[in-house]
Design a protein around this nucleic acid. Structure first.
Lengths: 361, 361
DNA sequence: TCCAAGGCTGTAAACGATTACCTGACCGAG
DNA sequence: CTCGGTCAGGTAATCGTTTACAGCCTTGGA
């Protein structure tokens, strides 16, 4: 009834007629072992069906060759590209991935990190859902190297890989301007949120560059219903359709835009695809042509497929690259002498890709 | 320069003035320890900022409280619901999830399992991508409890949770029949693949039940291009539109279906949403009304959002429930005396949910 | 009063690797 | 011939827990 306890290094060493030390040295390579003994050990290993015990190894060497990845819950799957790339990058380093979603409640976030640390992960990659819940969690992780990755990046001293907000908004505003946009609003970005505030600033800057008027940051929940609400608000505020000619359709007469506080707005940048969908649907139902009268685009795609044929013009996050970069930074930090957090936090920013859809010209 | 090696149980015991054994017993609960010492130990723990070392614990107790999840690569994220539910279920059991994607190459699959085993996971949940690559891998895993989960389930002696093919096809065929379908084909299911063969059989059975004629299983790659190809094939095969009246629209005259070997086919069940999209798009471009002339539905949704408003009628996999069930089975197997694989493999099947789209009536 | 039965506690032996340290052997230079 | 240096390989300590075993103390019934 013994649990068949598989062969250990001791068995291998005995079988090969060498000491455990030698057997271990063969396993880890990189050491001076004569060809003959090395062969003997390898033979013993296959003969006995020996399997390395990573647990014992980790206990002794104080390295688990494992990194923890903490993701926000309820992300409807658009993060799976991140998971996959992190996993692949770790594979290449011979490390394993421990995955955990940060629970919603209070400081459960800290508990999540705590759990990872007691598992003795060598490092942590955190995709922080929001500022408040994450600060403490990241602080709690201080004992191992940490890199933040994703849309939201929070100060502190950790390495991070995020999005290049200016390149992102330039791409989007540029495309809308090329389509004839002269005056735009954002929908669903709240100036209260630090990350959103940065994005709004970036949009504003891009507008100046392109000679587009930035009218207003319309706040709305960052979900479909938020887009719907924003559409209704827009329609109400609009006293009447004005005159003007759309940039495409040679000569067709369509309203120039939608009224928002004296401005004929002809473009909207939404926080994400869901918001954009809500906005577009309701506007069209009410007779506003999209993209004819108003072009709509989104800052964050939540879809996955490559779909050549998209409804909403959007920015695709470079998740695969972000995952790779995050792992690279982490491995690097692990290398530099016992994470003596010297040198300060490194920050890598990547640019998204523009996916043209039918909601813009 | 010492790596700050955090406090250990020895330190805690000393601080609390008890033996390590007692300290350990307090940690694991469940043992007889006097209230006073228990309190002293807990105080020492918080005072010292002690953190349990799961690695040492695992080495001694021969249990890592960890399960491995192996997923097929390139799944464009529709498996994230599975990951999330597995993770949540494991959390509830106080266990951790280590994730790994099975590499594509030859027997890299076996290497993946091997890696998990050397990490000493307590159990394995495998989502097998296809029959050939998975058999060996699953065999290699024999040393720990394994449960398979997902669309494809392969014999062997492992527990598994899969889809109830008959409930699934009944749902779909039923819906199409209610919409007036009398004669249907499948697209993208290949009779060569065992799992697909089962599905085709299930469709056939459902058709008999509903008095619908099952015409043919049109093979095609299970991607968008496959749907496009199938559409062209259908159009070619169709000599001319026939007459007839659609079940809906009172009296409107639309062709009854598309010709396939003497049959007026009026419904198609595709292997997945991508195939269906390809099919629908091309058919509509060529003037075939969908769902007017031909209803289209898909056996597998690859989308994520709840989207009330879908193009393709499809079956939503109950991933969350599947994840929970898989964990339940695994925990159960871990409980039953050292996985003495007695009792034979258990198989749980779950039913998908029908999501109505505009491609069917 | 004595004994059996528990309840608490401590001692010390694992768990299975890694690795610091030491011992010989061997080699070329001085 | 001696000496310093390098390479191979063995010995044994160590990583931080869990847990079998044994000892002690109480308690209650005979």
């Amino acid at each position: 009834m013994t649990p068949v306890a598989g062969p250990t290094l001791v068995d291998v060493a005995r079988e090969a007629g060498v000491s455990i030390a030698t057997a271990s040295r063969v396993l880890s390579g990189a050491q001076h072992v004569s060809e003959s003994r090395s062969r003997a050990v390898r033979k013993a290993i296959t003969d006995l069906g020996y399997r390395h015990n990573a647990v014992a190894s980790a206990l002794r060497s104080q390295r688990t060759e494992t990194v923890g990845l903490i993701l926000p819950r309820y992300t409807t799957g658009f993060l799976s590209a991140l998971i996959e790339s992190v996993s692949a990058a770790l594979d290449d380093e011979g490390m394993s991935l421990v995955l955990r979603y940060s629970a919603d409640g209070d400081d459960h976030d800290v508990a999540t990190v705590e759990s990872m640390l007691s598992r003795r992960v060598d490092g942590l990659i955190i995709c922080p859902p929001s500022e408040d819940v994450s600060r403490d969690a990241i602080a709690a992780a201080a004992r191992v190297p940490v890199v933040q990755v994703g849309r939201h990046i929070f100060g502190d001293g950790t390495d991070s890989v995020g999005l290049d907000d200016h390149r992102a908004t330039d791409l989007l505003v540029g495309s809308l301007a090329d389509g004839g946009a002269r005056s735009l609003v954002t929908v669903g970005l709240s100036p209260g949120d630090p990350a959103d505030a940065r994005r709004i600033a970036a949009v504003r800057a891009s507008c100046e560059l392109r000679d587009v008027t930035f009218v207003e940051a319309i706040t709305a929940d960052a979900v479909l219903a938020g887009g719907v609400a924003a559409a209704n608000a827009l329609l109400e505020g609009s006293t009447s359709s004005r005159e003007g000619t759309a940039a495409t359709g040679a000569g067709r007469d369509v309203p120039r835009g939608v009224d928002v506080e004296q401005h004929a707005v002809d473009a909207a940048i939404c926080a994400n695809d869901d918001v954009a969908h809500g906005l577009v649907t309701v506007l069209r139902l009410n007779g506003v042509a999209v993209p004819g009268t108003l072009q709509v685009a989104s800052l964050l795609d939540v879809s996955l497929g490559e779909g050549d044929d998209r409804e909403i013009t959007t920015l695709r996050h470079p998740w695969p690259a972000m995952g790779r970069e995050a792992v690279r930074l982490l491995i690097d930090a692990l290398g530099s002498a016992a994470h003596a957090d010297a040198g300060g936090a490194r920050r890598v920013t990547l640019a998204p890709r523009l996916l043209k859809g039918r909601s813009s010209r």
